[in-house]
Write a protein that binds this DNA or RNA. Structure first.
Lengths: 118, 118
DNA sequence: TCCCATGCTCACCAACAGGTAAGTACTGAA
DNA sequence: TTCAGTACTTACCTGTTGGTGAGCATGGGA
């Protein structure tokens, strides 16, 4: 599906990071992991309302392949898997911060525009 | 198609900016306009190798609706249309810079990883 | 004994982003 | 008279993305 090949020849840096961040849940996963440090699969699922198990796993796998997150499996009887950010994941999250601020500012702009448009 | 509705309820700022940046050519258009200031339609098309006219127009329209770019039409006989960044477009471009740097660094990391893997 | 919970995998589908190729209205050049 | 170039529009088609729902292996609680 989405996972594999990518990492194609990139036109610019944005291209390269977009390749890694694009995906409906990835930025949210980044956010969850950045806030909580370590999260189990089920915790992530419950933390992202609306995500299906298939999608969560798919996105987590891609992010793992892309070196953004660590996946730690415990050989226990009720399966236990913990996800956490790698250094790359943390730096990506930091790089996304200004974009997040811009988005927040934009939402505010849109809101004030619609309210002022009496 | 893509253009319309969006601006849905956003979960976070990243969401809101992604909504506006996602699109195969948008970041490139942003880059082109940031570098050249003002560009005609044909100049943009030639500056983005591989883009189709339909896609270019579609992305430009969406970006115009999102308030990222200005579209200036000259009532001349061979049609002339100029595109340029708005303040929002410029600030978005600035917010994308760290992400671009991260992507560039990542590409370098991948390259050095593949060369060192003798 | 059955169900739930763990963390997955797999098969099938629907929606949509993006691509291709044609057409439009006009003018100047060949 | 036909072609190129301007900036588009339109119809159609395909590949990718994401969604649904089932199944799997195991063990603890009701």
């Amino acid at each position: 599906m989405a996972s594999s090949a990518r990492r194609g020849p990139y036109i610019c840096g944005i291209d390269a990071s977009m390749d890694v961040v694009s995906g409906k849940w990835k930025s949210l996963i980044l956010w969850e992991l950045a806030n909580h440090g370590v999260r189990r699969f089920g915790e992530l699922r419950r933390g992202l309302p609306g995500v299906s198990e298939k999608m969560l796993i798919q996105q987590l796998r891609e992010m793992e392949q892309d070196g953004l997150i660590d996946r730690r499996v415990y050989a226990e009887v009720p399966p236990k898997v913990e996800y956490s950010l790698t250094d790359d994941g943390r730096s990506l999250n930091a790089a996304l911060a200004p974009l997040g601020d811009w988005g927040t500012a934009r939402v505010k702009r849109l809101e004030s525009a619609s309210t002022s448009a009496t």
